[in-house]
Design a protein around this nucleic acid. Sequence first.
RNA 1: CGGGAUGUAGCUCAGCCCGGUUUAGAGUGCACGUCUGGGGGGCGUGAGGUCGCAGGUUCGAAUCCUGUUAUCCCGACCA
Length: 493
Amino acid sequence: MAKELKELTSRSDNYSQWYNDLVIKADLAENSAVRGCMVIKPYGYAIWEKIQAELDRMFKETGHVNAYFPMFIPKSFLSKEAEHVDGFAKECAVVTHHRLKNSPDGKGLIVDPDAKLEEELIVRPTSETIIWSTYKGWIQSYRDLPILCNQWANVVRWEMRTRLFLRTTEFLWQEGHTAHATEAEALEETKKMLEVYADFAERFMAVPVIKGVKTANERFAGALDTFCIEALMQDGKALQAGTSHFLGQNFAKAFDVTFMDKNNKLDHVWASSWGVSTRLIGALIMTHSDDNGLVLPPSLAPFQVVIVPIYKNEEQLALISEKVAEIVTKLKALGISVKFDNNDNKKPGWKFAEYELKGVPVRLAMGARDLENGTVEIARRDTLTKETVSLENIEIHINELLKEIQKNIFQKAFDHRASVTREVNSYDDFKVEIEKGGFLLCHWDGTPATEELIKEETKATIRCIPLEGDKTPGVCMVTGKPSVQRVVFARAY
RNA sequence: CGGGAUGUAGCUCAGCCCGGUUUAGAGUGCACGUCUGGGGGGCGUGAGGUCGCAGGUUCGAAUCCUGUUAUCCCGACCA
């Protein structure tokens, strides 16, 4: 494996560069031949698979089923919901033809003008429109409701500027699209999925999040309300980690999806949609990792334990392998994923550095010395500490250690967030404080105009109106008008 | 779409200002051999390049000029 750049840019030196370096060097992804699109490499994809597996389980547990809809959307569909088209029109990839032919001058291929599509197709930036046009055929009665579908898919948004995982032209995500008979039920669904996301973020990603609702400015195009989970990165910038939208009857009206209710009355269907994307991997990286590389939560690490043998010859390796096999069996019995790296092409020192860079939570090293003493060296990634322990009940020790690492990195992220979250009461203070990063809890008069002004002057946005916590009213830090509660400001990715 | 930068070996880059001792280099990676092995190891040998592309200037261009194309970084826009 080629690792030319041995040294990572430090976070304090250049956080942005550190992130870019880390994604490449930890072998998570790389830029592709297609501008703005990334290749997710096996190690990075393995993390995505872990994320998928857990979320998929959680979705099914909450009554959802998977389905798949086309990646192409007839152009006319997109324009049916007025706000929706406004939100996405500027970043759509458009299919206009369906055939190529040899260039008359003999050089390469050209688009065959005879193969022009009657109606252009949009590569989905999100699937509300194609799904709601489909749901129209599925729904006649309240007995057909609710519909609780999720799809795992790729989407395309033609962004001007991209960054690996955080914003790519094409990205992988899941999008849930649900249809309900009542407003209350759709709203309940929206909130339920927000809880699922928050639970996943905190328990599996070890990323503490604030649950909240977006302001009108930040709302999803076509939604009545957008709920979100907001995370805080180590550099003090916020990252939206997931959204759950209450769509009201907007899409049902746009696509004329009606149903007969229990009283034989025709009504439009109520909707929610919700999604998280490969951006979560970006959140994972920027929350936990350090200047030595990636730090992965045990719950999502492609493998939780790596074992490195240290030997002088084949005989020693054979003896070590035998001992290691016992440990592997015990670990696997506890559901712990483990990799024994007996690759002879790399030296132990190289492997240590490599697995540190890749964020493997626990590393074991076993050599002749350990064989003699019945011990093994355990190194934990989060604290970079090492200890030599007895092999007796080693699997129990490691199991506990993994739990502790999971807890520790969450706590570390939680403490960091707490340390850079503060209440600010005057706009003058705000302008100073926002430069330092972090979440600022401030009173705001609830108007888009004030929000816009703050954004223009400070580049800070309202990340969300938090659902939990202090609800004391006050006065807007800018206009002095009444404020219902403090809202969360930050500069964001 | 504005601003900045860069295309030279698989990768990271030097050489370019000031054209000719450069037969185009280094590090790293790769192949083979060997000594090694508790934190990216040492020695030796070897393979690997139309210097992004197209023109131009010149006796001579990686180097100067023009055009073109691609990518990266920083902003504005967005998950």
